[in-house]
Design a protein around this nucleic acid. Structure first.
Length: 109
DNA sequence: GGGGTGACGCGTC
DNA sequence: CGACGCGCCACCC
Protein backbone atom coordinates (compact mmCIF):
# COMPACT_ATOMS: atom_id res chain seq x y z
CA UNK A 1 0.00 0.00 0.00
CA UNK A 2 1.42 3.31 -1.08
CA UNK A 3 2.25 5.88 1.50
CA UNK A 4 0.68 9.27 1.36
CA UNK A 5 2.67 12.07 -0.20
CA UNK A 6 3.19 13.58 3.19
CA UNK A 7 4.66 10.38 4.52
CA UNK A 8 6.99 10.08 1.56
CA UNK A 9 8.17 13.62 2.21
CA UNK A 10 8.62 13.02 5.92
CA UNK A 11 10.56 9.87 5.18
CA UNK A 12 13.01 11.80 3.02
CA UNK A 13 13.42 14.57 5.59
CA UNK A 14 14.15 12.00 8.26
CA UNK A 15 17.02 10.72 6.13
CA UNK A 16 18.80 14.04 6.00
CA UNK A 17 22.04 13.41 7.89
CA UNK A 18 23.06 15.56 10.82
CA UNK A 19 25.16 18.50 9.79
CA UNK A 20 23.69 18.60 6.30
CA UNK A 21 20.74 20.42 4.78
CA UNK A 22 18.47 19.86 1.82
CA UNK A 23 16.34 22.21 -0.21
CA UNK A 24 12.59 21.92 -0.51
CA UNK A 25 13.00 21.08 -4.16
CA UNK A 26 15.57 18.44 -3.30
CA UNK A 27 13.30 16.81 -0.77
CA UNK A 28 10.46 16.90 -3.25
CA UNK A 29 12.63 15.31 -5.89
CA UNK A 30 13.83 12.56 -3.58
CA UNK A 31 10.31 11.97 -2.35
CA UNK A 32 9.32 11.18 -5.89
CA UNK A 33 8.33 14.34 -7.68
CA UNK A 34 10.20 17.55 -8.05
CA UNK A 35 7.04 19.59 -8.40
CA UNK A 36 6.11 18.84 -4.82
CA UNK A 37 8.34 21.60 -3.52
CA UNK A 38 5.28 23.50 -2.38
CA UNK A 39 3.76 20.43 -0.87
CA UNK A 40 6.98 19.86 1.03
CA UNK A 41 6.62 23.28 2.57
CA UNK A 42 3.05 22.50 3.47
CA UNK A 43 4.01 19.12 4.85
CA UNK A 44 6.72 20.55 7.06
CA UNK A 45 4.33 23.24 8.19
CA UNK A 46 2.03 20.50 9.39
CA UNK A 47 5.00 18.58 10.82
CA UNK A 48 3.13 16.11 13.05
CA UNK A 49 6.32 14.61 14.47
CA UNK A 50 8.98 17.28 15.10
CA UNK A 51 11.08 14.91 17.16
CA UNK A 52 11.76 12.65 14.22
CA UNK A 53 11.32 15.10 11.40
CA UNK A 54 14.30 17.50 11.36
CA UNK A 55 12.58 20.18 9.34
CA UNK A 56 15.23 22.64 10.46
CA UNK A 57 17.55 20.93 7.97
CA UNK A 58 15.30 21.93 5.11
CA UNK A 59 15.99 25.30 3.54
CA UNK A 60 14.88 26.97 0.34
CA UNK A 61 16.92 26.88 -2.85
CA UNK A 62 18.96 29.88 -1.73
CA UNK A 63 19.90 28.21 1.53
CA UNK A 64 17.75 30.56 3.56
CA UNK A 65 15.85 29.41 6.62
CA UNK A 66 12.13 29.82 6.73
CA UNK A 67 10.75 32.97 8.30
CA UNK A 68 7.68 31.15 9.45
CA UNK A 69 9.58 28.40 11.20
CA UNK A 70 7.25 26.84 13.72
CA UNK A 71 9.71 25.90 16.43
CA UNK A 72 10.05 29.32 17.94
CA UNK A 73 11.12 31.50 15.08
CA UNK A 74 13.89 31.28 12.54
CA UNK A 75 16.47 31.89 15.24
CA UNK A 76 15.57 28.49 16.60
CA UNK A 77 16.27 26.86 13.27
CA UNK A 78 19.55 28.72 12.94
CA UNK A 79 20.62 27.65 16.41
CA UNK A 80 19.81 24.01 15.68
CA UNK A 81 21.79 24.07 12.45
CA UNK A 82 24.80 25.76 13.99
CA UNK A 83 24.64 23.21 16.77
CA UNK A 84 25.19 20.56 14.10
CA UNK A 85 28.13 22.32 12.58
CA UNK A 86 26.28 24.06 9.77
CA UNK A 87 27.59 27.57 9.51
CA UNK A 88 25.14 30.26 8.60
CA UNK A 89 25.92 33.57 7.00
CA UNK A 90 23.23 36.14 7.52
CA UNK A 91 20.56 33.51 8.04
CA UNK A 92 21.74 31.59 5.02
CA UNK A 93 23.74 28.38 4.60
CA UNK A 94 26.37 27.66 1.98
CA UNK A 95 24.69 24.99 -0.09
CA UNK A 96 27.95 24.27 -1.88
CA UNK A 97 29.26 22.91 1.39
CA UNK A 98 26.29 21.68 3.33
CA UNK A 99 23.68 20.51 0.88
CA UNK A 100 23.00 16.83 1.46
CA UNK A 101 23.18 15.22 -1.96
CA UNK A 102 25.76 17.59 -3.25
CA UNK A 103 28.22 16.49 -0.62
CA UNK A 104 27.75 12.89 -1.62
CA UNK A 105 28.55 13.73 -5.21
CA UNK A 106 31.69 15.58 -4.22
CA UNK A 107 32.89 12.62 -2.20
CA UNK A 108 32.85 10.48 -5.31
CA UNK A 109 35.41 12.61 -7.02
C1' DG B 1 -17.03 18.62 -5.55
C1' DG B 2 -15.11 23.47 -5.81
C1' DG B 3 -12.18 27.05 -4.36
C1' DG B 4 -8.65 29.19 -1.60
C1' DT B 5 -4.05 28.73 0.47
C1' DG B 6 0.94 27.86 1.07
C1' DA B 7 7.78 26.84 5.44
C1' DC B 8 8.68 26.60 -3.10
C1' DG B 9 10.97 27.20 -7.78
C1' DC B 10 11.81 29.59 -11.83
C1' DG B 11 11.17 32.86 -15.54
C1' DT B 12 10.42 37.94 -16.48
C1' DC B 13 10.12 42.68 -15.87
C1' DC C 1 19.42 43.36 -7.62
C1' DG C 2 14.37 43.29 -6.03
C1' DA C 3 9.46 42.59 -7.08
C1' DC C 4 5.86 40.12 -9.39
C1' DG C 5 3.44 36.35 -11.55
C1' DC C 6 2.56 31.71 -12.76
C1' DG C 7 2.73 26.69 -12.20
C1' DC C 8 2.75 22.94 -9.39
C1' DC C 9 0.33 19.65 -6.01
C1' DA C 10 -1.86 18.35 -1.56
C1' DC C 11 -4.67 19.81 2.29
C1' DC C 12 -8.58 22.24 4.67
C1' DC C 13 -13.14 24.43 4.70
Amino acid sequence: MPQSTFELIYDVVKQIPKGKVATYGQVASLAGNRRWARVVGYALHANPDPEHIPCHRVVNRLGEVSKAFAFGGENRQIALLEGEGVRLEDGRVDLEKYQWNRVMLEMLE
